[in-house]
């Protein structure tokens, strides 16, 4: 999958800029923005949480990205497929099912504590449609990668952003254009579910 930066941790995160200690602030602000947040100790626990969420939303079709870069996710996607749910991970398959998939599974590079945002590297077309077109977006992120505020986030982005597409996602798609009543899911997902993994090496 095409990305703005191949390895954000190595190339973009400077000394002391990301820290797990901002978790509580991030989680609170993400929830205020109507995201659901789950912290899990490793990918095994993440898989269990994912399956629990999928059972809840019972999707007919899933489109998913991030498996190419992350072997743990790759394996999880494969097991979901083996369990009998249609899951598409190839970019052209994702294109074909972009409008019919019920759930999109994607990844984020880091979290922003001040705003409860996820920084997403969306250079590729398939990453964008996966996170935007289905009604539910489930996002995997490393729970240790949290920056204090938007200023630090923009510093980090500034180090690696030479071309492409990235940004912040903060809660689901929303509007208040009718009588200023908050309504979710107007063009993008109406659910944003974040699975934050504490130990990305463990539990495989």
């Amino acid at each position: 999958m095409e990305k703005v930066c191949r390895d954000w941790a190595k190339q973009a995160f400077g000394e002391g800029l990301v820290d797990a200690k901002y978790w509580d602030e991030f989680a609170t602000n993400a929830q205020t923005a109507a995201a659901e947040v789950y912290k899990v100790k490793d990918f095994a626990a993440g898989e269990a949480k994912l399956k629990e969420l999928l059972a809840q939303y019972a999707p007919k079709e899933i489109i998913a990205v991030g498996g190419e870069e992350n072997p743990a996710l790759h394996d999880i996607y494969e097991r979901i497929g083996n369990d009998g749910t249609q899951i598409y991970t190839d970019k052209f398959d994702i294109y074909d099912h972009r409008d019919s998939a019920d759930v999109g599974i994607s990844t984020a590079e880091f979290c922003v504590a001040e705003t409860g945002s996820l920084c997403v590297d969306n250079y590729s077309y398939e990453a964008r449609v996966t996170s935007m077109l289905p009604f539910v977006n489930i996002v995997f992120v490393n729970a240790n990668y949290i920056v204090k505020d938007v200023t630090v986030a923009c510093q980090i982005i500034g180090k690696v952003f030479d071309k492409g597409y990235l940004g912040f996602v903060t809660g689901p798609s929303r509007t208040a254009d009718i009588e200023r009543v908050l309504s979710l899911g107007v063009h993008g997902p109406n659910k944003l579910l974040i699975i934050a993994v504490e130990n990305v090496e463990g539990g495989r």
């Binding site: 923005a33 001040e114 952003f161 597409y165 990235l166 903060t170």
Partner: peptide
């Protein structure tokens, strides 16, 4: 604190 989406597009993308 932040809108749902803040997007930066730089040049032609895929």
């Amino acid at each position: 604190r932040m809108t749902s989406y803040m997007t930066m597009v730089d040049g032609p993308t895929k």
